[in-house]
Design a binder for these strands. Structure first.
Lengths: 199, 199
DNA sequence: GTCTATAATTTGATAGAC
DNA sequence: GTCTATCAAATTATAGAC
């Protein structure tokens, strides 16, 4: 133990972090407009004015949530050009992150939600969401290189992968049926995985 | 002309229909929680109490919007077993409806939005959204039969098609980049279209 | 950093006149 | 069918004490 003092308080993290994490969870299940400062405040045991101390406006909070999410996502992903890895390995690594979201966290991707709601979001949040998709597409494109396929096909397969995973989550959530996501994965592995392995 | 009386009023349709159409457009761009009775009322030139006359609660309105959308969607689709049509023809017919949404209407699919927001929707709306995805999946599954692939592969390819189109719309909207949707289509045609044509 | 208090607006919904 | 009038609740946000 690095701290001898017993901790009667359930959560010692920064208030800002707790708010970001909680807001992320709520956005991912109900959407941006379903999240309010008062609900967040109640949930962490403070008043809404305290939330405004950490995030002056809701746009600030939204932006912070997306930026935190993107950073975590890219961190879990690691470099797309790690030595000794094949394009199929990278493809599977990408799939694993989405499996974690839908299976362990039981939520859709933050940016599937915000991407759908993009037309009603404040500008800074919009921009942060666009960054997520650009980074994810880029990671896949680079990761798919070095095998039997060229740059053009890598871009197309990356777009299919990203779209199918994001859409697959939404459909599975809406139907309340995880099996439909498994079907998507099966087809995707055949369409993309096999193509990366060909030659 | 079936009616000789000139029409100085811009819109003679039923108020209920106008409200449904307007609500659909707003849900598809900003989400369910961004739509309010007052905004709708202002936009069609009545008071919010009049909206409540046609749709007592917001859940009633939401349900009506989804049901109207599903009916229109299935109508545009036609029967999945039309004579003289190949599985590829049906696949292309399905793609065309989604092209219409993203290109002509410049909106994502209603159920891409509501599917993402499913966790925060009232029960009747939830149920209507689930119906949409079940019907779409079923149509594709049936439509893919009669060619070189079996029932199991038809189900998997149907799930991939639906997920990729729904997700592709969301990604394209979020990035503000229609080209990314074109890339998805390119890969999807190779993965699904070619497979339906094989043999 | 968190609080009390409050402002200004919007929301979903209802009662009852016309 | 639409209106006026109204309600209770919730929303984002701010000022200022502790």
């Amino acid at each position: 133990m690095t701290n001898a003092t017993p901790s009667p308080v359930p959560d010692r993290r920064d208030m800002a972090r707790r708010l970001i994490d909680l807001a992320e969870r709520r956005i991912r299940t109900e959407g941006y407009n379903a999240v309010s400062f008062r609900q967040l405040a109640d949930a962490v045991g403070v008043k809404s004015a305290s939330v405004h101390y950490h995030f002056p406006t809701k746009a600030n909070l939204g932006e912070a949530v997306v930026e935190s999410y993107v950073a975590r996502f890219m961190d879990q992903l690691g470099p797309p050009d790690a030595a000794g890895e094949s394009p199929q390995d990278r493809f599977e690594r990408f799939l694993e992150i989405f499996r974690h979201a839908i299976e362990d966290e039981e939520m859709i991707c933050l940016c599937a939600m915000l991407g759908a709601e993009i037309g009603g979001l404040p500008e800074p949040v919009k921009a942060a969401v666009a960054v997520f998709f650009t980074q994810a597409q880029q990671w896949l494109e680079e990761g798919f290189q070095g095998g039997p396929i060229g740059a053009e096909e890598a871009a197309a397969l990356a777009a299919l992968t990203l779209a199918a995973l994001e859409g697959g989550m939404v459909v599975a959530a809406a139907r309340g049926d995880a099996d439909s996501y498994a079907l998507v994965l099966e087809s995707l592995r055949r369409a993309v995985g096999d193509r990366l392995a060909a030659g």
